[in-house]
Design a protein around this nucleic acid. Structure first.
Lengths: 218, 218, 218, 218
DNA sequence: TATGAATGAGCGTTCATTCAT
DNA sequence: CATGAATGAACGCTCATTCAT
């Protein structure tokens, strides 16, 4: 039954290495990170690193993919679109934002790496794919919201999705740099307000409906 | 005071080198760019490069700083705040956006490098500084706009400036990747509309004014 | 005296490993062969390898030494010198050649490795020792053959042994590369003919007896 | 006229490196030779090595190719086949051998490397090609010699060329190992004698003409 | 000033060998 | 005896920077 199994694999080895790798990648970026540093930080040998990863990029990919997959789960799951009534939708949307950014905060090391471009050419595609996916998500949501009369009928969906995801992006960048966890509930309640109501006062908003050429005719 | 001016070397050398460096940095990223390539592209020698720059990063810094300085000029110059009336302000704001993004488009190579993290560590700080500065600018503008009743009195200035600059950021990222120049005037007219009016339909907007606890009419 | 014999491990282990090692060495050469490959091919562990061999080179040496020892046995055994009459000697010599090259053919993998330099430094000495030994053998044979009037009395024994062993060497190299077994009997009958009769026509041979200075009848 | 040429290339650099490389390759074989050793022996930096060679193998190839090309020139030039009369041919052949082995002696370092298999898998092909070429040369010579009645009419050309080139090979191996230059003229006069006259006494030679089955019928 | 040859630190990866189980 | 995880020395090659001319 019991196979001769030799020195049993240290079950912490890979985890230690991944953790150390995350730290080093975050600090140095993929290209500048030294495998030796990673191994040393994990209290392992360089050889141990190559026992668990094909090469440096492999470790990076594993870290990033794992995190993005979990984030994607978080984002996709149970859409606000099933809710009845604007209030419920907004409430759910808010809760979702809080949940997502909770995750972002927990993983702020890698998230920061990703948001700042991976500091490396060859992995931008991961972030791009993810961004594409999120934006597609948002476009569906906006279209549904328009049909539900929750959003303005004349909303430019493409552009809005771009602006909104940009806005979230920046919030994420801000959050991942914070040393203390911000009050996410409050933060996103406000974000929602700004997004939904816009910046303009009622009079300003009305102004925009006039064609550009007429505006200056004060 | 320097008596001996003489022939100050080939006055084009540095310019040639900077131009070549920009191309190579954009193509390869800071880390992967080879000084030799830069020199060759400039039709100069490697030695000449070190006659004009301390080291590779120095050239990069000069390129980026120059560009950001010009962009900052573009942004700061003659503020919308001097205008009378919302319409005029919006018009000026729009013109400004177009102008800025015209510049961004012209310099999309380096801009892209910056926006995507330089494909390199350690230069994020430049972008950060620039972003900080732009955001300060925007905060001033928002505050002024609120006083002028152009923007909602209850606008969260800090947060809005964050969201808006994030939105612009993303638009910039989109623009620098395009192969053909987008219609900036149209683009930013729409951006303005979304920003000012928000996403929500009137009823939605009203809803947000109620305290969270009251929203669910359940 | 060792009291505890017990079960002396798997008695096949070393044999399996040697067999596998031979295959891998032949395929990859000493330097490029990986201990891991050898172990895997033998269906054993890397540790097992080091239980039986000091190090990689040790296994290689054992393989080669074993083979050369068997080949030496083959060569030394029951010399032609005991035969009566040139015909019997030649016949025996031929039979011996065939036997030896039969062995060479059977072990062409390792033989090739050796003949072509082991694809590796530092093992030439084995081949050298073996060659030295064969040549000594041949020198004795030549001297005996001269005494027996089988070979020319003026034969330069040293040189001839060199040339003949070189010739055999080359035949061996040729044989170990073949994909199908050559007709050894025919091959070595011809070899014998050439060696004994030389290349020259009778007139040419006579010519050589004249001193160099006299040859040109000019 | 005079171009700015920077630090002029040290004209000895490549030569020094080639010489050093030759030594190191001869001592260690291609695989075990360290670029660092080569550079150090040449009194140059590692970088200098890569200034002149693509990679280690490139240097090896240059050394070997250069030498084989010169040797091939030596071998091909002005064939014995143009001579009239066996005496003249043999004389020329002898002179040629001496010339070739003079060259071999001069280049005994690399020659030894080659003859012993390059101690490396990947360059055997060079030696093979060369050997093929030499043998083809010899086959032509043997055929011509047979027509000219210089060689026995029943000579097995294929086999003889193999044996003879093997014999020369071994002589070469012997020569390149010597510490003092052997008397090549004397050596090859003897080689010629053995090759032409064979080893056998006249009676032995006659014996071989009988079919194998009849030999033992004394 | 300008050149480009020369330098050498630096790093990813392999694999023979060791050793805890 | 066996196992196979762990170790770390070793090395080819690159390229930023220096320096002789």
């Amino acid at each position: 039954m019991s196979q001769k199994v030799g020195r049993p694999a240290d079950p912490h080895a890979k985890i230690d290495l991944l953790r150390a790798a995350e730290l080093v990648f975050v600090e140095q970026g993929l290209d500048l990170a030294k495998v030796e540093d990673i191994a040393a930080r994990a209290g392992r040998s360089k050889g141990a690193f190559y026992l668990h990863f094909e090469h440096k990029e492999d470790a990076f990919r594993q870290i990033v993919e794992t995190m993005l997959a979990r984030l994607a789960d978080c984002i996709d799951a149970e859409s606000a679109m099933s809710k009845q009534g604007a209030a419920a939708v907004f409430e759910h949307w808010l809760a979702k934002d809080v949940e997502i950014f909770e995750f972002v905060w927990q993983n702020r090391g890698v998230m920061r790496l990703l948001l700042e471009g991976g500091k490396s050419a060859s992995f931008a595609y991961m972030m791009d794919e993810f961004a594409e996916r999120s934006r597609a998500n948002m476009i569906r949501f906006l279209q549904w919201g328009i049909e539900e009369k929750m959003f303005r009928v004349d909303l430019d969906v493409e552009l809005t999705s771009l602006l909104v995801s940009g806005a979230y992006d920046r919030v994420a960048r801000q959050v991942v740099r914070q040393d203390t966890k911000p009050d996410l509930a409050k933060l996103f309640a406000n974000v929602q307000k700004v997004l939904i109501a816009g910046m303009g006062s009622p009079s300003s908003a009305r102004l925009l409906d006039a064609p550009v050429s007429k505006r200056g005719s004060r």
